[in-house]
């Protein structure tokens, strides 16, 4: 689960302030901390690698521009940047129209698994989840990804999506039910028969 603690908040805000005062090393650190997360989120929501990269770049560009005006304590950097990403994703999904979510492969096992079979099963699970996510309504997909993959708490998701906490709970609950229904036929194939 991703670390979204207050320590990280302070560290990101501090790095942003350092960047605003002309520290190029702070920009590299912020890029290393934030880009993998927002790129991963955009890819899971949009299902298209090129679009996810464009969204991640645009969100970071807005963060760089915001840096001189950033007020520490008003918002978490991660929440702010995720909110930008969520809005950019929503815009792109609207332009595409309903039911046109892409399905680029998300599975790229970064760590060598102990065995090839286990590695393949991991990749199959990631792919199956991505396909099932693509079938969800956009808002449900965003909420489920933020909650269960990006590891955000419901109040923060509410801030990112600009909705109430109860609406977040409803979206994630309905999203999980829809995923379960979508994936039930693949339970055995994904190696859950004995679990």
């Amino acid at each position: 689960m991703q670390d979204l603690s207050d320590e990280q908040h302070d560290a990101d805000a501090e790095l942003l302030q350092r960047y605003a005062s002309g520290d190029a090393a702070a920009a590299r650190l912020l890029t290393a901390r934030l880009v993998p997360r927002i790129h991963g989120h955009a890819l899971r929501v949009l299902g298209d690698r090129a679009e996810a990269e464009d969204v991640a770049q645009e969100a970071m560009l807005r963060l760089w521009r915001q840096a001189p005006k950033w007020r520490t304590g008003e918002a978490k950097v991660t929440t702010w940047v995720y909110r930008v990403v969520a809005n950019l994703c929503t815009d792109r999904l609207r332009r595409r129209g309903a039911g046109a979510t892409g399905l680029d492969d998300v599975a790229e096992p970064a760590d060598p698994a102990p065995g090839a079979a286990q590695k393949m099963q991991q990749a199959a699970r990631v792919d199956a989840l991505q396909q099932a996510l693509a079938s969800l309504p956009d808002r449900q997909r965003q909420a489920v990804v933020l909650r269960h993959i990006d590891g955000m708490a419901n109040p923060e998701i509410a801030e990112v999506l600009g909705i109430g906490v109860e609406a977040v709970e409803s979206l994630t609950a309905r999203g999980k039910r829809a995923l379960a229904a979508q994936l039930s036929a693949q339970r055995d194939a994904l190696g859950f028969e004995n679990e």
């Binding site: 689960m1 993998p36 790129h39 991963g40 890819l43 760590d111 993959i149 995923l179 379960a180 039930s184």
Partner: peptide, 27 residues
């Protein structure tokens, strides 16, 4: 054949453990 919460959590865990790689070009 129900896909229960544990199985779903297994898929989420696989997704968290295998984050998409960021390309050098994007960086």
């Amino acid at each position: 054949n129900d896909f229960d919460d544990d199985a779903l959590e297994g898929l989420f865990a696989a997704a968290r453990a295998n984050p998409p790689q960021v390309s050098a070009d994007l960086q």
